[in-house]
Design a binder for these strands. Structure first.
Lengths: 334, 334
DNA sequence: AAACGCGATGAAAGCGCTTACATATTGCGT
DNA sequence: ACGCAATATGTAAGCGCTTTCATCGCGTTT
């Protein structure tokens, strides 16, 4: 420990009686070094408990081996599988994840993206974030690879991996209609993805020749809590137009709605059917278990990571948006 | 854009007709620069869309302004509030969060900590991780500030913020006993915190002169899913010794257990009471809502962040472990 | 035996910042 | 009017790596 500081590559070089450059090669391009030297260097490094300073490495080399991920809220389970998938694949490739939450605030969003760029992350993954025009422009100018997820953006900034929200919602509507439900309700937020789902849902309903769905919009910036689902279901039930099935834009809302029904002694699906979205863990265990839409949250994350790696390591062209699809999982709530 | 690369401080210096050092000062110690120059530099920077390279800054200065956080699983809601609290406070102080998951694997844990140290993070926060001896030794030698959370470690590596798991569990046992329950069950994992809770719980039960609790141990490395709670409850009910109240080491297990009871038509709390731990969102909305133990998950995170900041910015001495306490929240499930 | 190619190593020039330290400028007391 | 402390700015030495380019042996080729 040189005077309280950790050892540098040069200390290892001295210890192993080779040059600084050789030590560097041992760690980053081992084939260029003879077996014997390589071993000597490794021993010296171990003796000194040497840990390469990757920041200095990033500085000299071109890459930081850090990927920034931006989510609306870290504590929301909606995106956590995606982040987990992202993290796993990145780690394996020796990249690290820098994570930040915007709290649905456009200014925070911009400031976080700036911080990421300032740290010269090799890529940025945006999980269902707002992406306001200033943020968009910042990213377009920066030239850093960007992956937008959870939707198939019409004009992505760069890369995209997700599924068609309108299609998934339309399929859900048709599913409910096929099951015989006729008076549909829709509970969702006001964010872009919710609106897209509403659009698809509404279209499918009207194509089936049914009355437009009863819509309960949750104004909260974070339309994803159990409580809000419960409150929305309460409003839904208070309406004049009675519904026989309610589609919620995520499983948290759906579970909240389901619990609200239980609290009121309503039978699900007898009195009203409830359908969720995302296939979170919770949907599988409630009683009744929730019919929902599987969207491969984790795969979205791992694909995003893979796209980034392909782009950085190979110099592959920009891939087309990747459609991860969706499928409806039928359970007992419908 | 110098030939595809982003601008450097020197470009700004030229544009503003000042020296490199002055530009640096404008960004890091603005008081040292005259109002007029400062403005000129800011204008030049804006004109060039200059974004300071914080990595280079970290390299030259002493700090990376990055904090590493290690959790067992990113997708587990148990620690996500803690991480969120951590992230919020750090961001405000212009620090970034580097997040990684060990997947309960000691080797991963070690490798992640090495990666953090290699990146010269300014501090490391460990959220209820395993901390195997090799990891521990690594951190002890590194000299990087470390915060261990979610328990009051006897000999922390460095700093600690959390609560007494045995005490919290003992209080839970006494709570159930006070409510008249006599044949208690305990559902938990085999990780250290679960074991501590079991110990506290058992002690309180025996001090009350009751028979030892029926224990169902979940061997899974990630003892935190709804499914596991359900399976454990099923085993519990299949035992000879009948129980009238079951304490679960987290709300996910408790909710899973509750749903299992619903599935079997058992009344909660009539036939069996269920109590959880952590006060996750879910505990508030199930029917019946779960009695649980509030542990201030988010505060643990924000306190950890504050400790780190105090330590880094001030040169405060190592603070004593911070006890964030706990409190029992009585709801309808008991 | 001179010329050549090749693998292994070293020397040195950055990467884009921060920060002493040195050097002007300015205002002020006397 | 002169000296001195501030105040403002510039100069240059790193921070710990990566990487190009040059060098040095040596076994081959003709």
């Amino acid at each position: 420990m040189r005077d309280g500081k950790s050892h540098r590559m040069e200390d290892v070089a001295v210890e192993a009686k080779v040059s600084l450059a050789t030590v560097s090669r041992v760690f980053s391009q081992p084939d260029l070094v003879s077996e014997e030297t390589r071993q000597r260097v490794h021993e010296a490094a171990a003796r000194l408990r040497y840990l390469p300073n990757l920041m200095a490495g990033s500085m000299a080399g071109k890459r930081s081996r850090i990927v920034g991920a931006l989510v609306p809220a870290i504590a929301s389970p909606i995106f956590s599988e995606t982040i987990s998938g992202l993290s796993s694949v990145l780690r394996e490739a020796r990249y690290e994840l820098m994570l930040s939450q915007s709290g649905y605030d456009p200014e925070q969003e911009l400031s976080i993206l700036q911080a990421f760029l300032g740290r010269r992350v090799d890529a940025i993954v945006v999980a269902g974030a707002v992406i306001t025009p200033p943020s968009r422009e910042l990213l377009l100018n920066a030239g850093t690879p960007v992956v937008e997820t959870w939707e198939l953006i019409a004009e992505p900034i760069d890369m995209a991996v997700g599924f068609s929200n309108p299609d998934a919602a339309a399929a859900s509507a048709r599913f409910l209609i096929d099951r015989g439900y006729r008076r549909l309700g829709f509970i969702g937020g006001t964010d872009r993805r919710s609106m897209q789902r509403l659009e698809g849902f509404g279209t499918a309903v009207s194509e089936a020749g049914l009355a437009a769905p009863q819509v309960i919009s949750i104004k909260s910036p974070a339309p994803s809590s159990f409580m809000e689902g419960g409150a929305a279901m309460e409003r839904m039930l208070r309406q004049d137009q009675k519904v026989d099935a309610v589609f919620c834009t995520n499983d948290l809302l759906a579970a909240g709605a389901l619990f609200e029904c239980q609290r009121r002694g309503l039978a699900v699906p007898g009195d009203v059917a409830v359908m969720g979205f995302s296939n979170l863990d919770i949907s599988e265990v409630t009683v009744p278990a929730l019919t929902t839409v599987q969207v491969g949250a984790r795969e979205i994350g791992s694909h995003a990571a893979q796209m980034i790696l392909d782009r950085i390591e190979g110099q592959g062209a920009r891939p087309v948006p990747l459609d991860t699809g969706f499928s409806i999982i039928e359970r007992q709530s419908t």
